[in-house]
Design a protein around this nucleic acid. Structure first.
Lengths: 234, 234
DNA sequence: TCAAAAGTGTTTATTCTACACCCATGG
DNA sequence: CCATGGGTGTAGAATAAACACTTTTGA
């Protein structure tokens, strides 16, 4: 089993930063930690990497256990390895962040973990170095969303341009000119206009759009410029 | 010692992707692996994370051991965790990449590791998943260099605009118009023109520049546009 | 009929691109 | 004096930014 002799083996955890958008606010899914140390304190959802399991698989397992969801957008963020980060025993944490439509899943949360959504402006005190993780994830989200069409992962399949603009404004904590915004978004060719309108948030109603999936996948890694003067906001 | 009972501890390695520029070509520093499995095969320089040592510290230790250098530009790239990646025993590898001026250090390489610089176009067969690591690092380098002034880390303190342009052309495997290139670079305000000229590569001589360190550090994370049509090259 | 949000165009400023000639020097 | 690489400017095109009015419709 231990073929490389005399080397130290280390606990490896995966923690998930789960962003959700409810149409209004950007939120983070946190749990009450169920074991010592720091039992009962707010924490990111995480778990130890199991034998024979890749870290991607562990991240997906953890997200599935908490939300009942798979096929969620998720990417590795960073490996946190300060030897003091968990006071009980040295543990390396490989952090992932996920983006999902909060409304779709808000009723499916497993009770087992006492999970709750927190607006980003009202994050409670978190255990260990989880604040550092969250801050890095927020910075990464803003950075990446300014260049790539990543925020669509936070919206339902059908969404309106005002909803999309709300989301951008929430992420960047600012406001954009709607004429320039819609021109820029539509010029990417990523969106398909539907005939149906959303009548919930105005009398006139706003047209629904959906992602052109093929175009989206083919051009996801292209560098776009969603945000005017990104350096002011990132 | 083992406070979280029943969890599996895993070997954690750090591997370093070391890019160097010799003024002409972009190269990678590789070693001949000194132990089994795959002893004698080409490999990235790496090592196991030691107790009480952060991964950043491990990466710096490994780089120092091989090159005699510290204070080199280095950043974490990705954690590779496929359970089959090392056939002998499961090992997670946290990969870092480093950028340095090859000429400054080419004579200081430790003999102990049988290290050699390879042009990126002539990388030999590597062990395990090291090719995946190198490919990800190359992609990351191109991506990041198109947006941030990272390639300066590969040059000596004093460098000329033609040298800088060579480096960009080497990284992107293309050529740029020198008028537009120098205008773009100088417009960032990152460079200070020196009075001295490099007379080695032309009769007329090319002015040396150096980084405006304060400006460089303050604006490093700003998004610039060094590469016209980056999506064609990244 | 009016309040509230959706939708749309134009003008100006800025940035990007393409492109060619002169300069300085050592041999 | 000439071959070699270094250095510079401009005009046209494309993109980005600033800005305000009209439309729709449910109450």
């Amino acid at each position: 089993m231990h073929k490389y002799s005399k080397q130290t083996r280390i606990l490896v955890a995966v923690d998930c930063i789960i962003f959700g958008f409810d149409g209004n606010e950007l939120k983070l899914l946190l749990i009450k930690r169920g074991f010592e140390p720091q039992k009962g304190h707010w924490s990111l959802m995480g778990g130890f990497v199991e034998p024979g399991e890749s870290m991607d698989a562990a991240a997906n397992r953890i997200l599935l256990k908490l939300t009942g969801l798979d096929k969620v957008y998720m990417e590795q963020l960073y490996a946190f390895g300060n030897p003091e980060r968990d006071p009980l025993e040295r543990t390396i944490s490989v952090v992932y962040f996920a983006l999902l439509d909060l409304n779709k899943y808000k009723d499916q949360l497993s009770d087992q973990f006492q999970a709750a959504w927190f607006p980003l402006k009202k994050i409670p005190k978190l255990i260990f170095d989880h604040h550092d993780m969250v801050n890095m994830a927020r910075a990464k989200l803003r950075y990446k969303a300014s260049l790539h069409p990543i925020l669509f992962e936070l919206l339902p399949e059908k969404f309106t341009l005002p909803q999309l603009q709300n989301l951008f404004e929430e992420v960047y904590n600012t406001s954009f000119d709607k004429r320039n915004f819609s021109r820029k978004i539509l010029s990417t060719g990523l969106l398909l206009k539907l005939t149906e309108k959303d009548k919930d948030s105005s009398r006139k109603g706003a047209f629904y759009y959906k992602l052109d999936k093929k175009h989206y996948k083919a051009n996801f890694h292209n560098i776009l410029r969603f945000i005017p003067n990104p350096n002011d906001f990132i």
